[in-house]
Amino acid sequence: MTTTTSLMRFGVVGNPIAHSRSPFIHEAFASQTGISLCYDRILAPLDGFAHTCKDFFAHGGTGLNITVPFKEQAFVLAQAHLTPRARLAGAVNTLWMANGHLHGCNTDGEGLLKDLERLDYSPAGKRVLLLGAGGAARGAVFPLLAAGCTRLHIANRNPERAQQLQAHILGHMPEFTGRLSAGALQQASGVWDIIINATSSSLGSTPPDLPGGLYASGALAYDMVYASQDTPFMLQAREQGAAQVADGLGMLVGQAAASYEIWHGTRPEISAVLKALRLALYT
Rank of each mutant, 00 (worst) to 15 (best):
R179A: 15
L77F: 09
F57Q: 06
L165F: 03
L185W: 10
A246K: 06
L112T: 03
Y121S: 05
G183I: 11
A162S: 08
A50F: 12
A280M: 03
A221I: 01
G241A: 06
M251D: 04
T3N: 13
S36A: 15
C149Y: 01
Q73T: 10
V253Q: 06
V253N: 02
H101N: 13
Q229S: 15
D55N: 14
L64V: 06
G109V: 00
W96P: 10
Y226S: 06
T62K: 15
A243L: 11
N65W: 04
T5G: 08
L116H: 01
A272Q: 12
N156W: 01
A91I: 02
H264Y: 12
L113W: 00
G63N: 07
L113S: 00
L116E: 00
L7H: 06
G265F: 03
S31H: 14
A162E: 03
H103D: 14
L235F: 12
A227L: 07
H172F: 13
G248E: 03
D193V: 10
H19P: 01
L112N: 01
L102P: 05
R85H: 11
L130K: 01
P45D: 08
I66C: 02
D108G: 04
L82H: 03
Y121W: 05
R127H: 05
E27C: 08
M224H: 04
M97T: 09
C53D: 00
N197P: 05
Q32I: 07
L102A: 08
G241M: 10
F176M: 11
Q79L: 07
H153P: 13
E261L: 10
R161M: 04
R127I: 00
F142T: 11
Q244W: 11
C105K: 14
F233S: 06
I42Q: 09
G135I: 01
N15M: 04
S200P: 11
F75R: 08
M97D: 09
L214M: 03
L46A: 14
L210M: 04
A86W: 02
L279V: 13
Q244V: 15
R267Y: 11
S31I: 14
G111W: 03
G135W: 04
I270N: 08
A242P: 10
G139P: 05
A198N: 08
Q73C: 09
T3F: 13
A18F: 09
G218D: 05
D47K: 09
Q32L: 08
L131V: 02
I270D: 11
L180V: 01
L102S: 11
L130S: 01
S217C: 15
W192P: 07
G248R: 05
Q164S: 10
D115C: 03
M251R: 00
K54V: 12
L102W: 02
G63T: 07
F233T: 08
I196C: 05
A227H: 14
A86L: 08
